[in-house]
């Protein structure tokens, strides 16, 4: 590297520490975790494994599900009838929640939010984006959803019904986007690469 910047005699500023003071819930989490480990109910390695497994889940899981539904009408029918059972066919376990898959159509667009907290179909999409958890998205997605979509670059025609799904309880929601035109004959793998996280939340559509 011949970066002239690094030849300057002045010292680099160090990256600022972003650790704030420990909050109430952080302290609570640490206390409960240490008690559970101390009493031998779970181990530190159990906690680490659970975090690792959570971090390993990505929207690629959901994309596989969508691509399978696009290419296999029988699978799509099972997915819409019972999302939990259909994703299990692809090796995805919903654990304590159940999955409802909602299908976009030319006259219907679906959008998912959790106004009460930030319920999200983590088993199929991984961790939620920060904006999904923001107070602004959680309140505006029900109050003025078309304005929210516009800010995500999605113009919804007036003739299309916009259906917002508020995940208030035990269900989780996955949007089945419309298959983009011009993708006839594509393989499942190639189709899956088109399916983005945001299209499965419903803030955008899939494009080829």
């Amino acid at each position: 590297m011949t970066d002239i910047h690094h030849l300057h005699p002045h010292p680099h500023p160090t990256a600022p520490d972003r650790d704030g003071p420990q909050g109430y819930y952080q302290a609570l989490e640490i206390a409960v975790r240490e008690l559970l480990i101390g009493k031998g109910i779970i181990s530190a390695d159990d906690v680490r494994r659970a975090v690792e497994a959570m971090d390993a889940r990505t929207p690629a899981q959901g994309a596989r599900v969508v691509a399978r539904a696009w290419t296999n009408p029988g699978y799509k029918a099972r997915l819409l009838a019972d999302g939990t059972a259909a994703v299990r066919e692809l090796g995805i376990e919903m654990a304590t929640t159940r999955l409802i898959v909602v299908e976009n159509a030319p006259a219907l667009h679906n959008l998912v939010v959790c106004t009460l907290c930030s319920c999200y179909p983590r088993m199929v999409l991984g961790l939620p984006p920060d904006w999904y958890k923001s107070r602004a998205y959680r309140s505006r997605a029900v109050r003025e959803p078309r304005a929210v979509l516009r800010e995500f670059g999605t113009e919804l025609p007036e003739a299309v019904e916009l259906r917002v799904h508020d995940s208030t309880a035990d269900m989780r929601y996955l949007v089945l986007p419309e298959r983009p035109p011009g993708t006839e004959g594509w393989s499942e793998e190639r189709l899956a690469a088109l399916v983005t996280r945001d299209s499965m939340i419903g803030v955008t559509r899939c494009r080829a």
Partner: peptide
């Protein structure tokens, strides 16, 4: 602000 057909679905006990 949206058209009349827009809906919202909520889980209620």
């Amino acid at each position: 602000a949206g058209p009349a057909q827009d809906t919202i679905e909520v889980e209620i006990y």
